[in-house]
Design a protein around this nucleic acid. Structure first.
Lengths: 139, 139
DNA sequence: ATTATATTTGCAACAAAGTTGCATTTACGA
DNA sequence: TCGTAAATGCAACTTTGTTGCAAATATAAT
């Protein structure tokens, strides 16, 4: 398991408090995080602006990716190893649990082939499944 | 083709200026609309609050549905006939053109079967495809 | 270890998006 | 046409996101 410092180093990013701690929050979290979650989990230690800029840097470097959700709250999650600067490979589906609210990447579940009508060019596909997650279903 | 009054009547909604005109905007538009688009297309005739409440009413009744997009701008589009109060059947994919920015419902393109890992219950699936639309590809 | 420099941060001020309570207005059935 | 419930508009507010700039900090070179 890579740690925050490794990730920063291999992406040629300087080791600053905010980057290190925000990465740690992601590494510790099993579900995707909204901007707001990140501010809270870092005890509002960093300015809102810094969090925005740090997230943008991570997206640019391919360290995290965004997940659109129907309630207009973009969430962020760590990319897997294969992502790199300017090139995301998040070919997995996202699951939103309507019970606990958690958004998770289902890395094992591939995005199915989609056949668009004639004339459309397909660039990227986002699949968001809503339902009840494993943990909640047991309770 | 149903008109605005029919839709309001069959959903037991009173016929007010805002509801009628906002519905007409949807009926005339071939792509999904953001809140902001609606305000503009009604010439800012209605208070922002009224537009929000009207949209919420339409969603509750199953007249429109929301489309999540990766840039955190929820868009709204008319549902097809089969939707009803509290029960959306938008079993089609959404296409976001990165060239013209338009979001459209591809009603003919069904959502493929998705096989979730053991233990997950699937309720709703959203598929958003980014790319270049028919019209833009020609130019 | 010290210093120089480019990068990053925090602040202030702002803009946009969305919400709530309440008084006024409107739709529509009686 | 009138009464009432529903819908609207206004004001005030919260949340979310952005920009410019001065101060602070990370890192590489000495």
């Amino acid at each position: 398991m890579k740690d925050a410092l490794d990730i920063l180093k291999s992406n040629h990013l300087s080791n600053t408090d905010s980057r290190r701690e925000i990465l740690q929050v992601f590494l510790r979290s099993r579900s995707a995080l909204a901007h707001h979650d990140i501010e809270k989990k870092t005890s509002e230690k960093f300015d809102r602006v810094t969090v925005y800029r740090t997230l943008q840097t991570f997206i640019d470097k391919g360290i995290v990716h965004t997940i659109p959700t129907s309630d207009n709250a973009v969430k962020y999650a760590l990319c897997r190893e294969e992502c790199s600067e300017g090139h995301h490979h998040d070919n997995h589906i996202h699951f939103v649990c309507d019970s606990c609210g958690n958004t998770t990447c289902l890395d094992e579940t591939a995005i199915p082939q989609i056949k668009l009508p004639q004339g459309y060019r397909q660039e990227k596909v986002n699949v968001i499944v809503n339902g009840v997650c494993k943990t909640c279903k047991l309770n």
